[in-house]
Amino acid sequence: MTRYSLTHVGTAALGCLAERTSAIALAVAVLATLLATSCSRKPESAPLPKPTAFGAAIIESSGGKQTAQTGSLLPQPVVVQVNDEQGTAVTGALVEFAAAPGVTFDPTNGLTDSSGQVTTNISLGGMAGRYQLTASTLDKSHKNVELKIEEIALGYQQTLGRHLNDQYCERCHNPESTVQRVSNFDNLDVKPHPFTEGDTLNKISDADLTAIISHGGPALNKSALMPAWGNTLSKSDIQALISYIRAISDPPSRSAGPVYAKN
């Protein structure tokens, strides 16, 4: 009797289980659709366009070495070009862009246009520092050909430094003139260095940079054409300038921090 009832219980339990599985299956299905719908909220990555041609090399046309605030759009788009072995532009080759998480491309891929180029707008990631972007295309043997481009994201302090540089330093230190700003570089008998010149500036310690900016050229036995800014700028202003100088130097300074690249 006991045994009988036990088997009974067993079948009952089994039946129950079967019922439960179907219920679970239902629940899973519901969850899956829920998940799917919630996922489809995120922009879906469209299928890659089909390349109609293949190149041999990929080069940067413009847009490298720009600076932007963390998380923000680079001022200019990045343009890359795919060439064949002879160096002629290839139309219809597929270019894909990749970078560290947090960097966004618009678009993330594309076929080269009639001049062999693909243009993309880029927002850098949320952390200040250097970002390495990769543009890649396939060659005839379907091997990946890569191009690396570097861009610089400025944090708060460097952004402040850039502002001060624009206001007080740029006209002497940058040889390039723009419509808004005429350069004074050529008028100086002793030439200053553009702040991107890492080879020179990286050799100057933070303490020496502080000294020359605060007390002028003579503080480092240099020309008095470099004025003293210590009474015009605050200590934190000068720190901000130095962090900006360090951020944009090329080659990078030792204190520039890690380079963010794709994993």
Partner: peptide
Amino acid sequence: LPAKYIESACGQCHRGSLPGTPQ
């Protein structure tokens, strides 16, 4: 808040323009 909008935080207290918040 995504990093690109972080300067909005400065604007909660700072009602005038700041040299470090161009955006």
